[in-house]
Design a protein around this nucleic acid. Structure first.
Length: 907
RNA sequence: GGGCGGUUAGCUCAGCGGUAGAGCGUCUCGUUUACACCGAGAGGGUCGGGGGUUCGAUCCCCUCACCGCCCACCA
């Protein structure tokens, strides 16, 4: 006998272990089975399972389990990402906390050794947490971005791209993170709105030059008054950069400064003589219209400098202090300290003209949180523009489809405006770049040191000098970009690669469309000649119930593991599935999860009821042959639900699948079928009883299968707990075949008949509640004006009607008995003899309300049908539908009006 | 500045060309032998505003307003 409630805590670990041990997570070996592949978005090895992972991985597991049950060779390939900066940060922090020497004192080799040690000890936590979620990943294929195979793939890709001129070394401005002292890519820069100032500086003109600056204007904007100036005003939000200024730019058409182009200013503090140049970049409407040019520390200025031959003077050290290019008193100062001093000096010396407060966007490192500096260094770049073209084409032509579709626009937008991708990082934890330098700076890019040496010998001759390997590692996303094929064994042409590439569906968040999805598309197409996945399902972002992003500092974080402990894994999973609509945000509340926990309990108790009533599986039972209307009906409803869930998961439209399951199980199977079955199960008709038992058991089995992808634990447990009854089970639910039921099992007649019964019971219950008939009272029902079909139905289901509507009797008559309360029942009229409970006023109100409802309907429909255009142009069936609706409403209204008239006559 | 979403019942959302739906919450009633993590019933919306297309618009088009996000912008 089943317990009264399901106990997830004891069941989940046991079932998960059984699944894993059985090998069910491995893809089928059947060579005829179609492949279905998902590669996991590899979580950071430092990570722990947050609610976003719970959503993302639940959806992947739902798909994997669904396709596995459909007989496909389903592979969900798991793994983790070495997460360069994030991991290095964690370990460095840990070393510091333990009082160890810092990374730089420790040296590269020792430090990397420490990171590996850390990984071995605490790096795999998230993988175990995925197990708690029920993830049916094939753990035997688990990969890590820094493992041997993936590292080989990374080296190969790097070398090939280099030799194809799609990867190169270049000296240009990068986003420099002064805290980590590494370059980062554009995507790792986060613009944060910050309070700041515009400091307006007057740069003195050199060589005694003066000019007339307009100070008053007439209505037409023409200058009417001028002052003589021996300076030009520029504005900046970063005063310290002035020490690196090598020019001032004005717009070529700016009348004010026309005569200054080609002249010079003397840079304050430094005393450098720098030119005034004309460049379109200077915007006459902004500030003073003149702009200082610091080529080495501003992306725009770099371009201006190049166009006008202005030198790029680097004034910063890697940790953003001023270097020895600046006057001695500023050397070694932190950039912000220098800023203060320069402003103070400008004020003191009188060339600070104005301070303007402003709020502007300032670039910050997404990991370090410090202000990024544009910094002139040598780095490795991937020619993303070239690689992007086939990636664009693939989505334009539908080789890869996004779901929801609109994310394709975001993808296009980024790829069409893509910039070179800086892939080198000045870190230690990651894939070391396979490039070697000769003493003369000649570069050898090869997969191994031996090959590099061989190349060096070719280049230099037999007495080749000692090569120095590039110190840098690659951007973490470089290896992630290879994930769909590197995890399957590339560059070896493995069986897995042949069988499982391209993968089927990628499930991920929109926040990494650029970081990851687009780059996998570029690399996958380039190296495999085929897109890495056919579909990209973009899941929403989970937020708290007020819509705020969950964060530790806000204290609104919901820990999925705590929720699983409290409410069960299935409840969490169903919630994730049900809330996975097209919206960008999911507002998660605990109450919602509780609701789905209750749903699980409901199913559990329905099974318990079935068990108590000996509803067991019957060997050879054919649902197609059932005789009882309720059994024909539930058979059809089951078929419809199976079709709906199948369709929804194929798309996938997770919320639609969840909704269909919830409604069917609770509102159809439990609320109606089991209630309708009770009289038969308690009755004397042995044949009907046996048939109903078998049908109920069959329907429950289908329910367990259909629900299994979403709620694997409770369904597997019920499958197992009912295994000992009736005809034997062949194995675990996880490897059962997905139901494919014939449409012919939908019986329209049974549907109409049970529909009538449900509607009749509903009407009577409604009247009872509105008239406050005590639950214990069992009034007689009279049906007036029934057609032969209704009469037959009434006869067939009289017992059911009496039980469900709590009636004493139900008979046909020519007229309603005096004092009975009427209600519309299709073509007939029902009358409930509840005279002793009737409140005349309440009854009149009830009838009037009903009449008003029908009147509204009549008005609307009649108007429609009175429109000749409607009759002429609307579809035939729509017109017909409206005619019927009008007739029904008119008939119903007439009946109720007659009843109301009788009441009025009585008083 | 460029782009993308959203605006439907108190809340969270589904529906996306032909009678406005669900869950939760609210109110009323209920210890009927699966389930109070339950059952029965009820109330609640001029589908953000304005135009247009159509026989017909919550749904398609235009426009405005508000909310959110992404990208660019450190004079």
């Amino acid at each position: 006998m089943l317990e009264k409630t399901f106990d997830p805590k004891s069941v989940e670990p046991r079932l998960y272990a059984a699944w894993e041990a059985s090998g069910a997570f491995k893809p089928s070996q059947d060579p005829n089975a179609e492949a279905f592949t998902i590669v996991i978005p590899p979580p950071n090895v430092t990570g722990s399972l947050h609610i976003g992972h719970a959503l993302n991985n639940t959806l992947q597991d739902v798909l994997t389990r669904f396709h596995r049950m459909r007989g496909k060779a389903a592979l969900w390939l798991p793994g983790t990402d070495h997460a360069g900066i994030a991991t290095q940060m964690v370990v460095e922090r840990q070393l510091a906390a333990a009082g160890n020497v810092g990374r730089r004192d420790m040296g590269r080799e020792a430090f990397v050794e420490k990171v590996w040690q850390w990984k071995a000890e605490s790096g795999g936590e998230i993988v175990n947490q995925l197990r708690r979620l029920g993830a049916s990943c094939d753990w035997s294929r688990e990969r890590f971005t820094l493992d041997e195979g993936l590292s080989a793939a990374v080296r190969k890709v790097f070398v090939q791209l280099y030799k194809q001129n799609l990867l190169y070394r270049d000296k240009r401005l990068v986003n420099w993170d002064p805290q980590f002292q590494t370059a980062i890519s554009d995507l790792e820069v986060e613009q944060r709105e910050t309070d700041g100032h515009y400091w307006h500086f007057a740069y003195p003109l050199a060589d005694g030059v003066t000019f007339q600056y307009p100070v008053a204007f007439d209505e037409d904007g023409k200058a009417t008054a001028f002052e003589t100036r021996d300076f030009i005003v520029v504005a900046t939000t970063r005063p310290e950069t002035m020490l690196g200024d090598t020019g001032v730019a004005v717009h070529p058409s700016d009348e004010r400064y026309k005569d200054l182009v080609g002249k010079f200013v003397t840079l304050p503090i430094v005393g450098r003589r720098i030119p005034i140049v004309a460049d379109d970049y200077a915007d006459p409407t902004k500030g003073s219209g003149a702009v200082k040019i610091t080529p080495a520390h501003d992306f725009n200025d770099f371009g201006v400098g190049k166009r006008h031959g202005l030198p790029a003077l680097n004034i910063l050290t890697p940790d953003a202090r001023l270097n020895d290019e600046v006057p001695a008193e500023y050397q070694g100062l932190d950039r912000f300290a220098a800023r203060k001093l320069i402003v103070a000096r400008a004020e003191e010396e009188g060339w600070l003209k104005e301070i303007e407060k402003t709020r502007h966007m300032v670039p910050h490192g997404d990991r370090s949180g410090v202000v990024i500096e544009p910094y002139l260094t040598d780095q490795w770049y991937v020619d993303a523009k070239t690689l992007a073209q086939p990636a664009l084409k693939a989505v334009e032509e539908g080789a890869t489809v996004f779901e929801p579709r609109h994310w394709e626009k975001t993808y296009f937008e980024w790829l069409r405006n893509i910039e070179p991708w800086c892939v080198s990082r000045q870190l230690w934890w990651g894939h070391r770049i396979p490039a070697w330098f000769g003493p003369d700076g000649h570069i050898f890019v090869e997969e191994t040191e031996e090959e590099a040496l061989a190349a060096a010998i070719l280049h230099y001759g037999d007495d080749a000098p000692i090569l120095r390997r590039d110190e840098d590692v690659l951007d973490t996303w470089f290896s992630s970009a290879l994930w769909p094929f590197s995890t399957l064994g590339w560059p070896e042409n493995t069986d897995d690669l042949k069988r499982f590439y391209p993968t089927s569906t990628l499930v991920t968040g929109f926040d990494i469309i650029f970081f990851w999805v687009a780059r996998m598309m570029m690399m996958g197409i380039h190296f495999m000649g085929e897109v890495p996945f056919k579909q990209v399902f973009i899941n929403a972002l989970v937020r708290d119930e007020k819509g705020a992003k969950m964060s530790k500092s806000k204290g609104n974080v919901m820990d999925p593991l705590v929720l699983i402990d409290e409410l069960g894994c299935d409840a969490v999973r169903f919630t994730m599935t049900a809330m996975s609509g097209q919206a960008r945000d999911i507002k998660l509340s605990k109450q919602r999860i509780e609701g789905y926990r209750n749903f699980g309990t409901k199913l559990w108790n329905a099974s318990r009821f079935a068990q108590m009533n000996e509803c067991v599986r019957v060997e050879g039972f054919d649902p197609g042959s059932v005789k009882q209307p309720i059994n024909k009906w539930i058979r059809g409803e089951t078929v419809k639900t199976a079709a709906e869930v199948t369709r929804a998961l194929e798309e996938p439209s997770f919320d639609a699948a969840a909704t269909a399951l919830y409604r069917f199980i609770w509102n159809v199977f439990c609320d109606w079928y089991l209630e309708l079955a009770k009289p038969i199960l308690n009755g004397d008709d042995a044949a009907a009883k046996a048939e109903t038992r078998a049908t109920a058991a069959w329907a429950l089995d289908v329910i367990l299968k259909l629900l299994h992808p979403v709620m694997p634990f409770i369904t597997e447990e019920l499958w197992d707990k009912t295994a000992e009854f009736g005809s034997p089970r062949t194995g675990m639910l996880i490897v059962e075949r997905w139901p494919e039921l014939p449409e012919s099992w939908i019986d329209p007649e049974a549907e109409a008949e049970i529909g009538w019964l449900v509607e009749t019971v509903g009407e009577i219950r409604s009247v009872r509640a509105e008239m406050n008939v005590p639950p214990g009272a069992k009034p007689p029902l009279t049906v007036i004006g029934a057609n032969p079909e209704t009469k037959a139905r009434l006869a067939r289901h009289r017992d059911l009607l009496l039980t469900l509507a709590r009636l004493d009797s139900a008979r046909e008559a020519e007229a309603a008995p005096a004092g009975a309360v009427p209600f519309v029942l299709g073509e007939a009229t029902g009358a409930l003899a509840i005279a002793e409970f009737i409140d005349l006023t309440a009854e009149k109100a009830r009838l009037s309300k009903e009449i008003a409802g029908h009147l509204g309907e009549i008005d609307k429909t009649a108007k429609k049908l009175g429109n000749p255009d409607f009759l002429a142009r609307a579809k035939e069936e729509v017109v017909e539908e409206n005619r019927e609706r009008l007739a029904d409403a008119q008939a119903a209204k007439a009946k109720l009006e007659a009843a109301l008239a009788r009441l009025e006559a009585v008083g």
